[in-house]
Design a protein around this nucleic acid. Structure first.
Lengths: 269, 269
DNA sequence: ACCCTTCTGTACGATTCCGTATGCAGGCGC
DNA sequence: GCGCCTGCATACGGAATCGTACAGAAGGGT
């Protein structure tokens, strides 16, 4: 059975709790380039991506940007709300279009701060995000653009439903804090080696195994930590995967199209 | 009145709660170079530094290191415990000797996870730490060793009781993920300009204002976020600063020496 | 007083990446 | 079919940093 909720944080909830949360959720499209949070501004909604990709991006005064975190269907955008801070000094921007559930920050606080399984898993998710940031901090310092490109592609791919996604060299450059031309060179090498192919933003992972060889260890470190923190418990596997409350009424304009398409497995585990 | 508890997270607690926490605390010395947490290993204690400095350090397989977080009297070492993860993929190492309160991880979980003011402020501290990591990730990518050195010195200085502390070029190199020789060159420039002076590890900040000019914006971004999250509420300022329960019995071998020396103000605010 | 360790100063070729620029190509709008 | 915008390829001098190496200086131990 394919599930209707693909966001892992939501899908892992006990039926009762998911049902309760669900009434506060609305479905929204994530459009590439859309800025969800501006640096320092009040956070109005938290997002639970179902498809697509959102970046946490640190911005410098001269306009330089670096991605410091990445959120897809495995996580949530809006941890600062969860932590009791109304804003954060970084920007959240949609890199790969898709759709997400979202919830008003106020409602989220009200709903979640009472504790429960959801709360616990959000704490763990926060730890995972910190690991990501920490490792990226080290990675940015020690590894080449080429290695970091490979890690990025792997992390993106983990959060996608197919081995293909849309990211221009320009966008990647902003994520890695490098020049566009530098990305072209690095990506060119990967293409030459048959590891990836791409054309006008459409990137295709051709040989994932090789990509992992070219990547720095940071990718694996981060992934291992995610896996450790969100190890699937035996009983929840037996229970037939993610559930959705029977009585749910779909908010917004109905379920997003394509929700049952693509690969079934969530690869980030 | 000088306070006996200088750790800000503890000092900010209401009397009752501090008293409760205090029974679980023991006093320990932090010795330079001491490793408090090994990467990936179970965390046994959480630490609340009173003096000195602890680094969160990411380690690569080839032995390369980069600091991704820094903890002094403004914070706590052991956020992963708080978040429900028993370990984290980075190392905690004492950079500047001092002393701290520590608490068994189990007791900490039992004591803290019940909620209360402490819990709330730990959530905020987690946010501050994430900001630090995030900004450092960007900084490592975009700024020169010289700029980053300045930021580091400022962050260390903020957590010290005097404008002087012990850090060799070698140690700084490991924190910044750079070569020792590179640090010598950068530090040499600062000395030439009269901004700092140093001799065999003893570093003296001579002109803080200039140091801030040389530093990248990251220092200020991080500091601003700390200040925002831990803005002192009016009434707690009126109440005469940090308090300690009247009935406290000092754990360990009594209060550490020197606890009433040094500057009174906690500059990290 | 002397040794020995630790810390610092400095140098030099190699490497990575930047800043910038110029040209080509795919694909959309008209 | 023709422009035009966006995305990609490539080049070249220059800056930052690396890897490495060697030597001087400070200071503690014997």
């Amino acid at each position: 059975m394919n599930s209707l909720v693909r966001n892992r944080l939501l899908a892992a909830l006990p039926d009762q709790e998911l049902e309760k949360i669900f009434t506060g959720l609305g479905s929204v499209r994530l459009r590439s380039g859309e800025i969800l949070y501006h640096s320092g501004e009040e956070i109005r909604h938290v997002y639970f991506p179902e498809q697509g990709l959102i970046s946490l991006v640190a911005m410098m005064m001269d306009g330089a940007t670096v991605e410091t975190g990445i959120v897809g269907k495995e996580g949530m955008m809006g941890v600062p709300v969860f932590l009791g801070a109304g804003s954060a000094p970084y920007r959240a921007i949609v890199q790969v279009e898709g759709h997400a559930w979202r919830m008003k920050a106020e409602a989220f606080k009200y709903e979640v701060l009472r504790g429960g399984a959801f709360y616990k898993s959000l704490l763990l998710y926060t730890q995972a995000l910190m690991t990501q940031m920490s490792q990226m901090a080290a990675c940015n310092c020690l590894h080449t653009v080429e290695e970091r490109l490979c890690s990025l592609l792997l992390m993106v791919d983990d959060r996608m439903d197919s081995g293909e996604f849309f990211l221009t060299h320009e966008m990647i450059a902003e994520m890695l804090g490098a020049r566009r031309a530098g990305i072209t060179v690095a990506a060119g090498k990967l293409r030459q080696a048959g590891v990836i192919s791409y054309m006008r933003g459409r990137i295709h992972i051709r040989d994932r195994r090789s990509l992992e060889m070219w990547a720095c260890e940071c990718y694996r470190t981060i992934k291992t930590e995610f896996d450790r923190l969100f190890a699937v418990e035996p009983e929840s596997e037996l229970s037939g995967g993610p559930r959705i409350p029977a009585t749910v009424h779909w908010p917004g304009s109905g379920a997003p199209a394509g929700i049952n398409q693509g690969r079934e497995s969530i690869r980030l585990t």
